[in-house]
Amino acid sequence: MNVLILGVAFFLLVNVVAGLVRVWRGPTALDRMLASQLFGTTGTAILLLLAEGLSNPALRDVALVFALLAPIATVVFVRRWPLSSSANGGSFHEHE
């Protein structure tokens, strides 16, 4: 059982690494933000799996904190980032 749990944790880590490509490529700031949000979910899952697989129940608390605070970056971003997409300081469209 533990082998499977840790195997799944490893698989999810590989998923995160693959997802990094989206942060890398963008193309808009929103895509990058979205990808980081996705890592929050996957990171929570990895922590829950590690808590079981390493028999360290305290890791569930870390997962709880992850789940609570994953949205904070996105919320700060949408509430503070200028909406206008102008030619120069374009907020969401990036010129590659």
């Binding site: 980081s36 890592f39 990171g43 922590l47 870390v62 970056a73």
Partner: peptide, 13 residues
Amino acid sequence: IVLFIVFGLLLSL
């Protein structure tokens, strides 16, 4: 900066 946030998540792991 987005990658820096991701870095924090990974460091936590």
